[in-house]
Write a protein that binds this DNA or RNA. Structure first.
Lengths: 205, 205
DNA sequence: ACATTTGTTAACCAAATGGTTAAACCATAC
DNA sequence: GTATGGTTTAACCATTTGGTTAACAAATGT
């Protein structure tokens, strides 16, 4: 129905597993349901991926590898902090709007099992704040930015971008908006969020 | 170990259930584990709360009822938007630091089953943005605040306050800080977040 | 042609799990 | 004391679930 026509069974299974795991989480997912969604026999799952745990890890690592490098890319390019914020907000929101379950999936499973991160950290391409930190400190000294700790700024940027995807049912209920209106709010945020952050931290000249 | 000495079995069970459900989620939780944590027989769980589903709903509703009214209180008092932001940030962060699993638990389970919100919405005391919206619009007209939609501002406030509790393992890994340092970051946010928001939206005189 | 490896399936299995039952326990009332 | 009602437990049950097996089909190599 979506993509991955039929290349090979392996990625066809992975696609089905991704859908089920992201909907139900590791604990809620059933191997039978994944098999059904992939249109194959349950035993075949175990033929390709030995166990539920291994299938899950394959899905998780793929999802994480999709999300993390983008973050890294923006953090480590040569633009100013202001540009970084604009780029990140624009790119990341566009990306997540296409994969709305990703953030929730990844954060949940990391909470469930933080040790995962140890495996991930080994990979190079694992996001790293060093350059961003130096840059923030420098721009603060130069009087471009108001004093703020790089870590706090980083949390704020990520929070403003990702949170609406973690809490959509709740926000929809509180703000009394329907799906279409919420979708529009999200699109608006592609520019709104960057403005919001920059207005907060930039010293006007 | 914590509170609820021994009042009655019912709340003793609820306390144990809360702990297990918040750690493991509905799907990951086991009735046996809840029974063990409550120091009772598994059959007794079913004696007090007929099924896992009912026990879960009792826990969930209690958690939600703890979180929601606070939000409502701040939104609907008579202070200015600026004061509301300060109050909310200060109060909510203090509260959540004491119950760090709550946000993750509630958001997860709502994503898993958004229909829950219909039940919740029936309760009076369910948070409502009407007053907040009017107030934002008014202060924008009066030139106190820069133009911003109330919904977006609301999302931003909640995101900045809650997100660090949803993503703690991830942020710790990215920012390379240990538990103690992270705890300190959270405490700092009690004032930092309010400043960050107000700097962004307030028109300087 | 045929042997060998790879892919696929239906049937099966053992463990885990939510839930039930029937008996025991223990207060309080008579 | 013992009848009565709620409380608690050990043992049990049916179903679900992850995983295996053994047979079969389809490629692939020779």
């Amino acid at each position: 129905m979506t993509e991955t026509k039929d290349e090979n069974k392996e990625s066809q299974i992975l696609e089905a597993a991704k859908n089920v795991f992201q909907r139900k989480g590791m604990d809620g997912a059933r191997m039978q349901e994944i098999a059904d969604e992939a249109g194959i026999n349950k035993a075949l799952l175990h033929y390709y991926y030995r166990s539920k745990q291994m299938l899950f890890e394959a899905v998780f690592i793929k999802a994480f590898s999709l999300l993390a490098p983008q973050l890294n890319k923006v953090l480590n390019d040569d633009s100013s902090i202001e540009e970084k914020i604009r780029n990140f907000t624009e790119n990341y929101l566009s990306f997540i709007i296409k994969h709305p379950y990703l953030p929730s999936f990844i954060l949940n499973e990391l909470n469930r099992n933080p040790d995962f991160l140890l495996k991930m950290k080994a990979n190079k391409g694992f996001p790293n704040l060093d350059k961003f930190k130096k840059q923030v400190n420098l721009e603060v000294e130069q009087g471009i930015l108001k004093p703020i700790k790089a870590e706090q700024l980083f949390i704020n940027i990520v929070a403003l971008n990702i949170f609406p995807f973690l809490a959509s049912p709740l926000i929809k209920a509180f703000a009394n908006v329907d799906d279409a209106a919420y979708q529009q709010l999200l699109v608006d945020r592609k520019t709104e969020v960057a403005i919001f952050i920059i207005d907060s931290i930039k010293i006007k000249s």
